[in-house]
Design a protein around this nucleic acid. Sequence first.
DNA 1: TTGAAAGCGCTACCAA
DNA 2: TTGGTAGCGCTTTCAA
Lengths: 338, 338
Amino acid sequence: MKATIYDVAREAGVSIAAVSQVINGKGKISEERRASIISVMEQLNYKPSLIASALTGKKTYTLGLLIPDISNPFFAEIARAVEDQGDVHGYSLVICSTDNKDERVERYLTLLGQKSVDGIIIGTGMDSGELLDLLLKKSIPLAVIAREMPGHDLATVVVDDYEGGRMAARHLLGLGHTRMAVLAEHRKVISSRERIRGFQDEVVEAGLQLPEYMVKMNGRDLVNDGRRSASELLRYADRPTAVFCCNDLLAIGALQAAKEMGVRVPEELSIVGFDNTILATVTDPPLTTVSQPTEQMGQLVVDLVLSKNDAAKPGESKRVMLKPELVVRQSTGKPISI
Amino acid sequence: MKATIYDVAREAGVSIAAVSQVINGKGKISEERRASIISVMEQLNYKPSLIASALTGKKTYTLGLLIPDISNPFFAEIARAVEDQGDVHGYSLVICSTDNKDERVERYLTLLGQKSVDGIIIGTGMDSGELLDLLLKKSIPLAVIAREMPGHDLATVVVDDYEGGRMAARHLLGLGHTRMAVLAEHRKVISSRERIRGFQDEVVEAGLQLPEYMVKMNGRDLVNDGRRSASELLRYADRPTAVFCCNDLLAIGALQAAKEMGVRVPEELSIVGFDNTILATVTDPPLTTVSQPTEQMGQLVVDLVLSKNDAAKPGESKRVMLKPELVVRQSTGKPISI
DNA sequence: TTGAAAGCGCTACCAA
DNA sequence: TTGGTAGCGCTTTCAA
């Protein structure tokens, strides 16, 4: 069986209060008692139960991370960054893959609440704003990463999605493209919407159009849905010479569609991704993509949710918006007709 | 503030015992009391604290997963499978990326112990067998995935690594290769060793050799280390015509090295990976690789650690060994000299 | 300095 | 059926 504080106290011939003191390094204890207690603790291999300590109002040293899917390399990278920074402060990480389904979001959120985690980091889309209020009422710190959470004043770390979209468009426009398409995620995903908006604004400012039928929404199975959507685009009589994909997974789908249909990339179709995951470096051809600084984002969001940062003006949540960066590889080029 | 069982009891005009009854669906309560209590619970948005309930000896509904790195797509897939199956039984998942460092393994293991998780799934290498015994003594169920844990009789789910190595070798031999090399992980990683052993046995049985200088060990930064190792191999006067990589990440490194040095794949160098991650489908050329059934593995290991499977003979731990599968893509071909 | 004791929120046993 | 109550393991007053 597991040793408890009572075992240690008995063995050391002291009260449990004394043992608690040395565990927490507080209070006054004579050096010899402390030493003897410590030695007993080691001997019994005693480790204080975090459950019990949490019940007395202390921390659980657990953070929750809500993301669409841990097997999506982008979120896996975010998770790793969050885990590492949490680890720095002694926290461990509960992973919650939501598939962007409200039902899963809801279930996970209440579960994390019941487990009294010390903070929840949200990196997934969700409709259920009420749930957040509930959590807030239970005074669980919340922070948002890689997403906006409109209508809620939460600490947030994002990349400038709008600007990222503009960068992608600027790059393609600069190459001379005039017929461009977009592969987006579910419309629930705000970052995706922002990227499209930026892309579109830039295109329109250049005096061109982004007709609605050139913008395809996609479901959960990003690669395959992206592939299907791209095939459709490529079957148009006025098929696009370039496609901006709201993440690398969709871009890979587009790449596959092009390959299947014998459409050369980038000669006949330029493809731009988003996220700059490891995937973008290994595709054929390597993907031009908009990069997010995942490591920095993970660090910042953990510090925010744990309020390890310099406290902002009270009542005003911190917002950090990082700059994306365009990484040009070989999946983009001049349109062949030019 | 968060509502407690006392709030509910007071509000409903009953004892906390009654409330506890309806939470756990046990004991006898009249239908009306039950209904009224339930309505009060909803009204107060009461959710029982899992911390408190865990302290009374019930489960924590938390599982720990130790893996080298969640940002490695193979382990991200495993994690997703484990998470989903855990979710089926109402458990959430704490992710622990160890980087295969004993120090991290140790820290995470004791942390999980202090948090009284209901089970730990180990998918990382480790030297510290004593720690496991300690955990076992504290009666935390353990199970191993995608690894062997020699010297410990633990429930285990693996793929037949040895056979996987043989399959890779058979494939390359069948293509006519005679000078082959291996890119392996750190020697601490047993699965890697088994894969090499299988590969080597098959090669030797074919009357060929696998000299030691053709086997390169690699560190934590798999892609880059793989790239470096592959460059070395390609600089040999008797450079190999094929290389078997113990995972897809190493294979990608090899691919990059080949590209950098102008070595054509598969014409001048055939590359075989292992794991069949999403990466293998997007590389240029797509990777021939040995596939592991991650989803099935995740499901099985969760059921094992929760003993949801049909109980084995007591005292005898369950072992499940799944068959790998060779997925032939375009990174392998006949050696050019033939 | 030290320790007795009152919780933390919930479960489970036992008496009413 | 119901509710009082003794813990679960630990923290934290508050006296001694």
